[in-house]
Amino acid sequence: MTTPDIVPDIAAAAAAAGLACTALSLRRRGRAILSDVTLSLRQGELVCLVGPNGAGKSSLIRCLDGLWRPGGGTVAVEGRPLHSLSREAVARLIAYVPQAAGETMALSVAEMVALGRAPHRHRESATERAGRVAAALARFGLGAMAERAFDELSGGERQRVLLARAFVQDARYLLLDEPTSALDLRHQLDALQIVRGLVDELGVGVMVAIHDLAAAARFADRIVLLSAGQVQTEGAWQDVLTPDHIRTAFGVEVTVGSADGLPYIIPAAVA
């Protein structure tokens, strides 16, 4: 009775569902962190999550990776609730890059990147793994520092190692928690260009929590503005990052514009 045509349809429908949360709410220590958040991340798009400190960006990212269990609502990846999957299965679908790596107890760059293969370790040989890690190191320009201690690297180099680890994890969705906050201008640009490249070349879906509104406007396909634990608006940057919206969310008067096709947002005064 089944027709073979249905199978690709199901796969397509699953992919279209992406990584999504519905009516998500989260309380921690008696305080409401997120309330009624509904959004989705599809493969092949770069979504920037912006909002003031304490708006719930990092919490939302953690909920989307299943690291925190929400108090209400659901998180599902391609139609399957996260809590119905094993952590290893989730790790093969979703990669997470934390805000700061901290000390790593003497792991080398190659060992850090190799950890991205952890959720696949029962399914591949050591040789296959070494090949993938070597390829990732080369792709991210880390080949020359493969044996260096991660803890000795600069902030920009560390960020690149963490991105390489997420890349080698072979996930369909990447969640990055403020990957640029500790970086100088050049390395911010470098990291975001790498991320954009992952979206365009590999078709992964990436959600980036980020403070730099201009960078978000430049690199994102879609922007979600989070304020006090709720989605205030979402859409194209021209529609979301308006002076009105920014005044409401951040309490700051801004000038928004674009020069040579590059968006800029200049904070003028506290509203």
Partner: peptide
């Protein structure tokens, strides 16, 4: 290794 690399959250996100 995963714990050493980033504590509970990183270990969990890597599937442990």
């Amino acid at each position: 290794n995963a714990f050493a690399a980033g504590g509970d959250e990183v270990a969990s996100s890597l599937g442990f």
